[in-house]
Design a protein around this nucleic acid. Structure first.
Lengths: 152, 152
DNA sequence: GATAGGGCTTCCCATCATTGGAAGGTCAAG
DNA sequence: CTTGACCTTCCAATGATGGGAAGCCCTATC
C-alpha cells in the first residue's frame, strides 16, 4: 500500500479541490509538493491531514490568512491556547459583525415588504423607499466651481 | 441655477463615489453621461436621484443585476408590485441563506470556545477540532451563552 | 505497438463591488 | 504662469473559487 497520492486523490480525501490545492501552494499556504519525474505533485497522508485542516477551517469561515496563522500554531509546540483564541476571537467578531449587517438588511427589507401589495398594481413601498427615503444632500462645493451655462 | 453637476458633486450628493459612478456607466447600469467640450461628465438632478436609488439599493445588499432590474421597474409605469416583490423576495431569500450560514459558523465556533482555556497551555479544542473532527470537543454543554437567534 | 481515455501540468480569464494609483488634461484663482 | 483641485482614461488588486484551453503522462485495451 502506498501512502503517496496524486493531487486528485488528495483532493478527494481532503475535500479541497485540486484547483484549490494548487492555488494554496502558489500563495504559500502549503509547502510546494514533491513531484514525480514527470512533474506530477505527490501528497503524503500528513499533507492530506493538513488539507483537511484547511478545509475545516474554511468551513468555519476563516480567511486564508487566519488559516496560515492557525497552521503555524498547530505545528508550533510552544503555542498557547490564548494565541489560538485570539485568532478565533477576531474571526468570531467579524462573523458577528457580518451577521448584524445582514440582519439589518433583512429587517429593513421585511419592513418594506409589509406594505407591498404584491399584486398587479404598480405602487410598491420597496421602490418608493429606494427612490425617496434618503434626505437629499446638497452637492458639496469644494475647490473651484465653474459655470456650465452652455452645456447639453 | 446650475442644475448640472460634475461627477464629484454627483458623488457627494448621491453617496456613490466618482469611481463607482464611472464604473456603473461602463457596465451599463446607468446611461452614459453628457460631457462638456473638454470631456467632463455632467449630471442632472434626475441622474443624481438615480444614483441615490442605486446607493440605497446597495445598502440593502442588492446586487448590481438586481438593481438594474429594479431601475427598469422604477422607470416602467406598467410595472406591478408583484414584479418588484419577486426581485426583492429573491434577494431576501439569499440574505436569509447567508445569515443562516454565518450563524452556523458562529454556533460551531462558540461551542469550540467553551472548551478553550484561553491561557498559556497549548491544548485547545479549536485546533483539535480543525485537526481531527472525529475527536469531538468534550460534550459539556450544548447550549451557547450568546443568544444569537437564527432568522430563517 | 498504437490508440483512447482520463488525469495531470501550466496559464489565462471570470466572478463581484470596490478601491488605488499613475499619467495627463482642464479649470479657476493668486 | 503657477498652483492645486478637479477631471479624464487605463491598469491593477482585492478573496476564494471555477472554467477552460493546450499539451503532457499513464494505463488499459485492441
Amino acid at each position: 500500500m502506498k501512502h503517496i497520492h496524486t493531487i486528485g486523490e488528495a483532493a478527494a480525501a481532503s475535500g479541497v479541490s485540486a484547483k484549490m490545492i494548487r492555488h494554496y501552494e502558489k500563495i504559500g499556504l502549503i509547502a510546494a509538493a514533491e513531484r514525480t519525474d514527470s512533474g506530477y505533485r505527490l501528497y503524503t497522508p500528513a499533507d492530506i491531514h493538513t488539507l483537511r485542516f484547511i478545509r475545516r477551517a474554511r468551513n468555519l469561515g476563516f480567511s486564508v490568512d487566519d488559516i496560515s496563522e492557525l497552521l503555524d500554531l498547530w505545528r508550533n509546540d510552544s503555542r498557547t491556547s490564548k494565541d489560538v483564541r485570539r485568532v478565533a476571537d477576531g474571526h468570531l467578531g467579524a462573523l458577528r459583525a457580518k451577521a448584524a449587517e445582514i440582519h439589518s438588511m433583512i429587517d429593513a427589507l421585511e419592513q418594506l415588504f409589509d406594505g407591498c401589495t404584491n399584486d398587479e398594481r404598480p405602487d410598491c413601498p420597496i421602490l418608493d423607499d429606494l427612490a425617496d427615503a434618503a434626505k437629499p444632500a446638497r452637492p458639496k462645493q469644494v475647490g473651484h466651481k465653474f459655470g456650465f451655462e452652455r452645456v447639453c
